[in-house]
């Protein structure tokens, strides 16, 4: 091998250094601490009433006071979110395959999908309650509705973005449609599928809460509505923090999965 080629290749990947770790974790943590401190200071300095804006301490108190109850409600919301999301992925990806695979189907289904997506989902929430009652089902369906569209769009886009030279390459070996799909098109679309899944997971939590607002007897959204009615603002805040945590954990869980499964994708450093 000559010096020309050796000089340009990248060395083996090394783990992040201590400094990188500090900036990765330290800086967001610093930001969080600063915001909480400001919030606390504001409630003390302006002596804001607890039922208007509770201080961080009030929120922590509220959480500790009802920890068991809150964890149970968190579990309910988390389950609805994950179930709806998985359902959307399991149904959305094959539908995207159909759309990407056939012009006819694309023309038939695509405008319909756009129209359905244009309807504000919150408008459907009361109807879902009428149809399915107060159980978990209408929540799962709402999460599904919010997640489905970004997954389908992203996946279909990914499947249609196979570079011409790769398509021609497999054709030059006389590959069948199935071979071309599984050896090239689908793997090539995977990073784009992940983009759709990551967009969807953020929407998933929103979907669960919307559905719980409208009609529920459990879940964090239900807790927020209840504490609003009884002016128990610290409890509502505690629930919101838990919702935030669910969202962050799910998103980074997906990112970690992506790094594990698609180490070759450009998006990852």
């Amino acid at each position: 091998m000559t010096s020309e080629t050796l000089g340009r290749r990248r060395g083996p990947r090394q783990g992040p250094s201590l400094k990188d770790r500090l900036t990765d974790w330290g800086l967001p943590l610093l930001g969080l601490v600063a915001v909480i401190a400001l919030w606390w200071a504001a409630t003390v300095v302006f002596s804001i009433e607890k039922f208007l804006v509770p201080s961080p301490v009030d929120v922590v108190d509220a959480f500790i006071g009802q920890a068991g109850y809150l964890m149970a409600q968190t579990w309910v919301t988390l389950l609805e979110t994950v179930e709806g999301f998985l359902l959307a992925a399991v149904i959305g990806v094959p539908i995207a395959m159909l759309i990407a695979g056939s012009r006819l189907l694309e023309k038939m289904i695509y405008p319909l999908l756009l129209a359905v997506n244009a309807v504000p989902k919150i408008a459907i929430a009361p109807i879902l309650v009428v149809w399915m009652g107060f159980g978990q089902m209408p929540k799962i369906v709402m999460v599904f509705l919010l997640c489905f569209f970004p997954i389908v769009i992203s996946t279909a886009t990914g499947l249609k973005s196979t570079p011409a030279e790769l398509a021609e390459l497999v054709r030059s070996y006389g590959a069948s449609r199935m071979q071309a799909f599984f050896k090239v098109r689908f793997p090539y679309a995977l990073p784009q599928v992940m983009v759709g899944l990551k967009t969807a997971i953020s929407l998933a939590v929103i979907g669960a809460v919307i559905a719980e607002f409208v009609g529920a007897d459990a879940g964090l959204g239900f807790v927020i509505v209840q504490s609003g009615a009884s002016a128990d603002t610290p409890l509502a805040f505690a629930s919101m923090v838990l919702l935030g945590i669910i969202s962050i954990v799910l998103f980074y869980g997906l990112s970690a999965l992506e790094n594990l499964v698609l180490p070759w994708a450009e998006e990852n450093r």
Partner: peptide
């Protein structure tokens, strides 16, 4: 065999697996 202007390698396959692609298809 046809060789293109661009390398047209599959980014998720190692060098060896890229070379083996035609073997799998054929």
């Amino acid at each position: 065999s046809f060789m293109f202007q661009r390398a047209a390698l599959l980014p998720w396959r190692t060098v060896l697996d890229n070379v083996m692609l035609p073997v799998e298809i054929l």
